[in-house]
Design a binder for these strands. Structure first.
Lengths: 228, 228
DNA sequence: CAATTGATGATTGGATCCAATTATGACAGG
DNA sequence: CCTGTCATAATTGGATCCAATCATCAATTG
């Protein structure tokens, strides 16, 4: 394995690393379907149906559903089955409270150690968010932008928690954008955070981030209040 | 079910709710074994052995291990199996970083809404921590004390995240106490937090909490540095 | 007629079996 | 003597089957 051909290395990279196990495949597909809204909140997830749809047995489906429950994307009840977690004003507020607790901590620890490569990646992601016409990709780009800014925090578990929270937030971002358009992506905040990070000004960056999250939370809460 | 007898209600409460499923039983038992140190970090968890030990098949064991992986108590590798997550200085710092992010947010939101019952429960728990001779129970009491103070935060997912993080912290608390004795429980901090909560002074309470966590993190880091 | 009970069908939890992957160790070659 | 290779055993991932639980609805009874 020491002299892996470039071709082979690229092939492996393209296939997403290594041949995934059936459970991982089902989990990833279901997560994507839930976050994209293809599976609406409240949908009952019958193990048999999913197994047929994926061409596997019920077992990998069961394990995938358990994993998704741990990510708060499905609600599980013994002997009753799984349903897609509902989105609600209360859950949105909960998600923002978690983000507001975790992300400033990530950013504060990361800013002093960010290298030029990460900063450039973040800048590219801002550009992609401006130019990508697919609103469905904005969630992924937004998540990658934030995680790039946090990537040098050096706290793997803290970052993992933040990433799953951000992933679960995708549904609300789509909601938000569908109602208000991409103007509410707050690209100004993103640019301000990046500039503060370039200046190694962690305090300014976290101030912008807090404001960014609080404003978004308030906007989303008002949206829910208006049309429940 | 509308006119349930008080006797029946008490009986149900005593039996701990409902008969748990095998997966839940195995998960709870393994978690307790890991947190108490009976299963040391790095221990390989063979599904077959565990299944025999619990008198069940490998399947509930598999699901329990997946659940524990989501709680960062075991490390899982496809086709390789599960091992008990190692404790380390880096992981301790990670855990404290998460606590320091989540818990002040919980406390700040909870203090304004705490009722007398919760405050009395918290006071009782401080007393129990002073008098209980079993050091193994201090982790549980400490966790319950903190969660009681956060219980009125009204953010179920934030609280759930905090509780699992606190649970995972039990191993480090035992470590800590074994080395330094119960003097380092920082009961003074606990009392100060409770008093601030009684005064509805959320700022003071969170200040004490932050100091409490930062001091404990520093002490534990020094301990790890001294004897690896 | 409402409410409870009992039977039936649908669905999940658990056990057992088979396949795929990884670890172990013997052995040939340099 | 060390290294790499190949065969074998141990272990996990997945499929299939059975048991337990829950939902649905008709029937009975007050």
């Amino acid at each position: 394995m020491q002299n892996m051909q470039p071709d082979l290395a690229r092939l492996v990279a393209e296939t997403g690393g290594r041949p995934r196990t059936a459970t991982q495949h089902v989990e990833a597909a279901l997560r994507e379907a839930i976050l994209s809204g293809q599976l609406a909140g409240g949908t009952a997830l019958r193990q048999e149906d999913l197994a047929r749809a994926f061409g596997v047995s019920r077992m990998p489906v069961r394990e995938a559903l358990r994993q998704l429950e741990a990510q708060a994307l499905v609600d599980f009840a013994p002997h009753k089955g799984a349903i897609v977690a509902e989105i609600s004003a209360a859950d949105a507020a909960d998600t923002y409270a978690i983000r507001l607790a975790l992300e400033p901590a990530c950013l504060e620890r990361s800013v002093p150690h960010l290298d030029a490569r990460a900063l450039d990646t973040a800048a590219d992601l801002i550009g992609e968010m401006d130019s990508d016409p697919d609103p469905g990709r904005l969630g992924e780009l937004n998540r990658r932008f934030h995680m790039t800014l946090y990537s040098a925090a050096g706290r793997p578990r803290l970052l993992a928690l933040t990433e799953t929270t951000l992933a679960g937030f995708d549904r609300y971002l789509r909601f938000h954008l569908a109602a208000h358009g991409r103007a509410h992506m707050s690209q100004d905040d993103h640019r301000a955070m990046l500039e503060a990070a370039r200046r190694r000004d962690a305090d300014a960056a976290t101030r912008v981030l807090r404001h960014h999250l609080q404003t978004a939370a308030a906007t989303l809460a008002a949206f829910f209040a208006a049309r429940g």
